[in-house]
Design a protein around this nucleic acid. Structure first.
Length: 391
RNA sequence: GUGCCCAUAGCUUAGUGGUAAAGCUCCGCUCUGUGGCAGCGGAAACGAGAGUUCGAUCCUCUCUGGGCACC
């Protein structure tokens, strides 16, 4: 079971400084949670991840269910042993794949709606279904991206898989919704997500892992949905808060821009138990961090540092650097002048540029290490700011 | 030396008697509970000369370069 201690509350905002204790150690919050979908931070070994100041990782239930299957992971001694990561772990429930493989794929939109004119006519009405995913009130039928076979995940299945995987913090199975859904769609979807949340709690308590020594028990976080509709977000926050979750996730779409993201958090966070940790799912550009932390977010996972790293984008004090650009072949500086990460201590832009252009995986690795270190240092500085009363 | 074949974008190849298309490369841009993908946009070519023709990248000849075979 987790334990969450709030060390300091900001007087300027809802930001707080905390310690989140888990069966595999504690983390300082606010904290970034790097993404290790398939039980690996892509291109890195777990030892390398430790050199990036990463405190906790999040793996994915859906992907690990497909490959290699939770039975394999369980028999390998569960996720921590399997991937040689003895620090805290989370697993996402598979709820995001309802969206990413469903409407997200069909309509080519993300959690935050961009202002493309072609999105204007795209609307998801109440009884619409995605092409490759069938969403029912009991659970979701997926078509496996691996071999095409049909697979079903509902709250019970997600809990069982997550139990086998053995992360410290697990999430309730939810339907992550699209920003293009109508109010009626979201209202109906929300009912499902809430029913599933209740079922997840019940199932989790009945599973063997839910009955073992308290110190080892997984902590199940409930997820608030409701899209960009104020009353639905409020309704969801109140309901999820009323259930016996030790922490919360805030999921779903966050409106059409960064401002709506802040608004949605302002509607939601105050309705959730202040003493419990709050995780924002899937958000975390550098410019988002202060914004969400000020609004009471303790942890947040984001693919940006790793995903961008593999595409050759390095984050620096002077902005994003597309290291594949040919002029970097003549640049003898480190990725970032002030960075103390293993990459910046030992390698220069010219070499990393060459590696990425030659499609050598070490290029991706070096940037991934840097980006993670840079993001974690960025959050570290935000923690400092809270400590010093500046945020 | 003789015979045959070939010559289209930086690379690899389509194609047509009315000036040309694609993949890769290159140059921009997009990417938030991760395909290392993907998508959008851009730059860029008919080896040289002559002939036939209203018009030749396409047909004919010569040259240049490359390949193969034979002596």
């Amino acid at each position: 079971m987790i334990e969450f201690k709030i060390l300091k509350k900001s007087k300027k905002s809802r930001a707080r400084l905390g310690i989140l204790k888990t069966p595999h150690g504690e983390i300082e919050t606010p904290s970034l949670v790097p993404v290790a979908t398939q039980a690996v931070v892509k291109t890195l070994t777990s030892d390398e991840v430790k050199e990036t100041k990463s405190q906790i990782l999040i793996c994915n239930t859906f992907h690990l269910h497909l490959k290699p299957g939770e039975k394999i992971v369980k028999s390998a001694g569960k996720l921590h042993k399997f991937m040689n990561w003895n620090r805290p772990l989370m697993t996402d429930s598979g709820g995001f794949q309802v969206f990413s493989l469903g409407f997200g794929h069909d309509l080519n939109v993300g959690k935050i709606l961009k202002y493309f004119p072609e999105n204007e006519n795209k609307i998801i009405e109440k009884d619409n279904q995605p092409k490759k995913v069938k969403i029912t009130d009991d659970g979701v039928f997926f078509k496996s991206p691996v071999d095409g076979r049909e697979l079903y995940i509902g709250p019970k299945e997600s809990m069982k898989i997550q139990e086998s995987l053995g992360a410290d913090i697990i999430f309730a199975f939810d339907e992550c919704t699209s920003p293009l859904s109508t109010y009626e769609y979201i209202k109906h979807s929300l009912k499902r997500t809430h029913t599933w949340a209740i079922q997840c709690l019940k199932v989790q308590k009945s599973l063997p892992a839910g009955r073992q020594a308290k110190s080892k028990v997984q902590s199940l976080f409930g997820i608030v949905q409701g899209s960009h509709f104020k009353d639905l977000r409020e309704e969801s926050a109140k309901l999820i808060n009323s259930l016996d979750f030790p922490g919360f996730g805030i999921g779903g779409d966050l409106g059409e821009n960064k401002k709506t993201m802040g608004k949605i958090l302002d509607w939601t966070v105050p309705l959730l138990d202040e003493k419990k940790p709050k995780h924002l799912l899937g958000i975390g550009y550098l410019e988002d961090m202060e914004n969400i932390i000020k609004r009471g977010i303790d942890t947040f996972d984001c693919t940006v540092p790793t995903h961008y790293g593999r595409r050759g984008i390095a984050f620096t004090d002077k902005g994003k650097l597309d290291i594949r650009k040919s002029h970097f072949l003549n640049d003898k500086n480190p990725l970032d002048q002030n960075c103390e990460c293993p990459t910046c201590q030992n390698y220069k832009r010219n070499y990393i540029c060459h590696l990425t252009r030659a499609r050598e995986i070490t290029g991706m690795k070096l940037i991934t290490i840097h980006n993670l270190y840079y993001f974690n240092t960025f959050v570290e500085k935000i923690r400092e700011k809270i400590k010093n009363g500046k945020l």
